[in-house]
């Protein structure tokens, strides 16, 4: 049992470190903003802390009145994922609006240019 626990601890920590270095790599290429980077690194650090001290989740869960630590992680995880989905939806919607504006501009510009050429 002990071996199993340490195995998942190691797995999670390796995964978190890989993820952080991956995100840092993207940041170096200038493809995402500082704000997003800090959020991601913060999230992965929390995961590292929880893997090192699993009892912490149980403690927090009890404090909040949720039975098990793992349940707390699930709830937070699912809510977080939904929030991210919603943010993504809004972002895409904004991009769509921007594309519409551009397409309208292009259409009007081209028609006016043809009128001028006449």
């Amino acid at each position: 049992m002990l071996e199993l626990i340490s195995l998942y601890k190691i797995l999670f920590i390796v995964l978190a470190i890989l993820a952080i270095s991956f995100v840092l790599g993207i940041y170096k290429n200038g493809k995402i903003s500082m704000k997003v980077i800090i959020l991601w690194i913060f999230l992965w650090f929390i995961l590292i802390i929880f893997s090192l001290i699993p009892d912490l989740t149980t403690f927090l869960a009890n404090y909040l009145g949720i039975g098990r630590g793992i349940d707390l992680l699930f709830i937070v995880g699912i809510l977080g994922a939904y929030y991210l989905l919603f943010r993504l939806y809004l972002n895409i919607e904004n991009i769509n609006q921007d594309i519409n504006k551009l397409v309208t501009e292009i259409a009007i510009f081209n028609e006016n240019r043809e009128e001028d050429e006449k």
Partner: peptide, 18 residues
């Protein structure tokens, strides 16, 4: 006649707006 061309399909709402 004025001809406004959307280079890509953007839907009824966008077309009306243009």
């Amino acid at each position: 006649i004025f001809l406004l061309k959307h280079p890509i399909n953007r839907g009824l709402g966008a077309a009306l707006k243009t």
